[in-house]
Nucleic acid binder design. Structure first.
Ligand SMILES: [Mn+2]
Ligand SMILES: [Mn+2]
Ligand SMILES: [Zn+2]
Ligand SMILES: [Zn+2]
Lengths: 157, 157
DNA sequence: GTTTCAGTTGCAAATCGTTTGCAATTGACT
DNA sequence: AGTCAATTGCAAACGATTTGCAACTGAAAC
């Protein structure tokens, strides 16, 4: 029995580990980047760029810089991009060596997000890939519903 | 044994059936709407609004009208909206009585789309919903990979 | 067939998330 | 401290989508 070999989702990463990873890609550790990483570190859920901006000490960093930073972090595999179906991309820190693949359960009323450990069955995915001659097949999967609190709210109306 | 009771994916619908459904929602059958429905009828895959516009006899209808029509058709349950992760929404006609829930396999190189019949296991989804106290849980799921033709192309480079 | 009017449309302007050009700034190395 | 490529802020540009508004048109009612 393996003891949690690789799936430690949402374990807060050390800031030094993060900056080391950036340096490893020969990138500068700038004020804005450190601030952004700090925000991501503190939030174990996907954040939009605007949410990151709002969480930042005001005037700490321009929105355009956040967009550029997220591209960089995505390219270096330090964050994973998620889509919840509204227009905006959301980003979450990814553990070293992890590819960040996982899924969420989102409340369609209040946007609460729950991290989900289940994944689409590999065998079925492989069968789908093979049946259509596709290679390197992966998937995006998100769940949507009404959270307990919003069920309450609805009942009262 | 039931003979294909409800899942007849992508069976081309009669235009009259479509206009009847719209009338059923007390909406006018206008030139633009008929033209849009005709395009959707002919395409068994999700289309962006811009693709619909391009497929339309030129000048047949304004892009804003297509956006408005897709909202209407979505609200009345005649089309289903899909997200492939690029900015744009895509729409597909939904059979009468069907909710249109299904998934796709998309080539990340050439954007070819394959319709998929598999779905996320209901039992697992229910377990996820129950474990988190969520109600009315559903999911969005799309597969991405490299299609046979693009595998060829890549090999040649 | 004509009248009537709410529903619909085209067009332009507005909005939203995101990208980009550019000149000024700044980490990291010497 | 000096150098220089990488980085940033700011404003303009962009692509998808929405919206205000005046003109227009199905379809129900005469
Ligand atoms: Mn997550
Ligand atoms: Mn489809
Ligand atoms: Zn998965
Ligand atoms: Zn499904």
């Amino acid at each position: 029995m393996k003891a949690c070999a690789h799936k430690h989702p949402h374990q807060r990463q050390e800031m030094s580990a993060l900056t080391d990873r950036l340096r490893g890609h020969s990138r500068k550790i700038t004020g804005p980047r450190a601030a952004i990483l700090e925000i991501l570190r503190q939030h174990p859920h996907p954040l939009t760029n605007k949410e990151i901006l709002a969480a930042l000490p005001k005037g700490q960093c321009d929105l355009a810089t956040i967009y550029r930073s997220m591209h960089l972090l995505e390219k270096t595999g330090m964050v994973k991009r998620f889509h919840f179906g509204d227009g905006a991309s959301r980003f979450e820190l990814v553990g070293e060596g992890d590819d960040g693949h996982h899924h969420h359960l989102v409340c369609t009323k209040c946007a609460e997000v729950v991290e989900i450990d289940d994944c689409f069955p590999t065998e079925v995915e492989q069968r789908i890939a093979a049946a259509n001659g596709f290679k390197a097949v992966t998937h995006r999967l998100e769940f949507f519903g009404i959270c307990p609190e919003c069920q309450q709210t609805l009942r009262l109306k």
